[in-house]
Amino acid sequence: MTWDERVYLDYAATTPVADRVIRAMLPFFGGTFGNPSSVHFEGQQAEAALEEARERIARALGAKPREIIFTSGGTESDNLALRGIALAEHQRRGAYRILITPVEHHAVSATARQLQDVFGFIVDYVPVDSYGRVDPDDLRGLIDSSTALVSIIHANNEIGTLNPIVELAAVCAEKGVPFHTDAVQSVAHLRLDVRALGVSALSIGAHKFYGPKGVGALYVRQGTSILPIQTGGAQERGLRAGTENVPLIVGMAEALEWTLETLDQETQRLRALRDHLIEGILNTIPRVRLTGHPIERLPNHASFAFENVEANALLMYLDHAGFACSSGSACKTGNPEPSEVLQAIGFTSQWAMGGLRVTLGRGTTQDHIERFLGVLPAAVEKCRVVSRVN
């Protein structure tokens, strides 16, 4: 099989950089190469490009330019939000509790655990329902004066479920507690307005919406207490030291604008393909369950659990057949353990070992879906036979 015959169905892991984005970045790798902190002409050119990108991203998110902090990606944005806000709130008012859910991306959950293990914070978990959603009343009952920060994922990377962020942020505002959301998955498919959402901080990463890898941003609402976690120079309002990666930041701004320009049309197209895919799998394969919310989910995201199937074996079979998929988070692929997310929403290990995530994007066609539906049933059955033999 040649590369052009392969079918990529893992857009939640990463996306190809759009041609328009590459063209926008190219000048800043060569002729316009200055350091934006330099005072000379070359530095001023770079600074102008940097601040224009900041304005474009702020406008796309409904934020003020000074509320946008550039980072190396969604993971760093999550790290800065959790450590920076939690430590600032501890310093400011002695708060020491962090509330997260059991279905967060590891960029959030691992950071929270380190804050507990090393810095003495207490991490408590807000329960989720069988779809991975948080009930605002449950959150309200857990917040108290010791709570430094609440962080709840916007769209789950593994099961696609959308959380009621507006309602959750309102609960935090009512209690006077900062609220962060990891919007790395959702920004590619939803129009996000940070003012309407009511969040204190929001993380994004460019490579999820056809921008380059290695660059992201953190929105921090003006007035939110936050400490830097990377110290040195005064870049990014002193919150993230280091020379900014101007080419990638320009590319991120271009990618976000391009994504939003055709968002409505593309969402409608992807939702139709996704629904056809879900229907085809549920109707043709026995002992399979859709994971995540059936309606309140990302428009490009389909995820399943197969009983008595080992996810890695299924992925390898599909890869050999020419299909690139995932068992969940791209950061967890290759892990032979049952999915933590599936276990958190009530699946037994017999099911949680068999997670499959299929995510669609701009390159996905109806033919790709039909071809995939033609291969998957046999792949699942073969993996079940191997499982029975072993």
Results as ranks from 00 to 15, higher is better:
W3Y: 13
E5F: 08
R6C: 05
L9G: 05
D10I: 04
D10L: 13
T14G: 11
D19Y: 06
D19S: 04
V21E: 00
M25E: 04
G31A: 11
Q45M: 04
A46C: 08
E47D: 14
E51K: 15
R54C: 04
R54P: 08
R59H: 12
I69R: 02
G74E: 08
G74N: 09
N79P: 07
G94K: 03
A95I: 13
A95E: 02
R97D: 07
R97W: 03
L99E: 00
V103G: 02
A110G: 11
A110M: 10
Q114G: 07
Q114Y: 12
V118M: 13
V118W: 15
I122P: 01
P127H: 07
D138L: 14
G141W: 08
I143V: 08
V150Q: 02
I152D: 00
N156P: 12
N156W: 05
N156C: 05
N157S: 15
E158R: 07
E158M: 06
E158Q: 12
T161I: 12
L168C: 10
A169N: 08
V171N: 00
A173I: 14
H180A: 10
H180M: 13
D182P: 06
A183P: 10
L190M: 14
L190D: 05
R191E: 12
R191S: 06
L192S: 02
R195W: 06
V199R: 03
G205T: 06
K208P: 10
F209I: 12
Y210P: 01
G211L: 08
G211F: 01
G211Y: 00
G211E: 01
G211D: 05
P212R: 01
Q222L: 13
G223D: 09
G223L: 11
S225I: 08
G232E: 10
A234V: 14
E236G: 08
G238S: 11
G238K: 09
R240M: 07
R240K: 14
G242V: 08
T243F: 04
V246P: 03
I249Q: 01
V250L: 05
G251V: 02
A253Y: 02
A255V: 12
E257V: 07
T262Q: 11
L263V: 06
D275Y: 11
E279L: 09
N283H: 13
I285A: 03
P286H: 08
V288P: 00
V288S: 01
L290R: 08
T291Y: 03
G292F: 06
G292A: 10
H293W: 13
N300W: 04
E307T: 12
N308D: 14
E310K: 13
A311G: 10
L314F: 06
M316T: 10
L318I: 11
D319W: 15
C325Q: 10
S326D: 11
G328L: 07
N335Q: 14
P336L: 06
P336M: 07
P338Y: 06
E340W: 08
V341R: 02
G346S: 05
G346D: 06
F347R: 02
S349I: 14
M353V: 07
G354R: 03
L356M: 11
L356E: 01
R357C: 12
T359A: 05
G361F: 01
H368S: 14
H368V: 12
L376H: 03
A379H: 01
V380T: 07
K382E: 10
R384W: 11
S387Y: 11
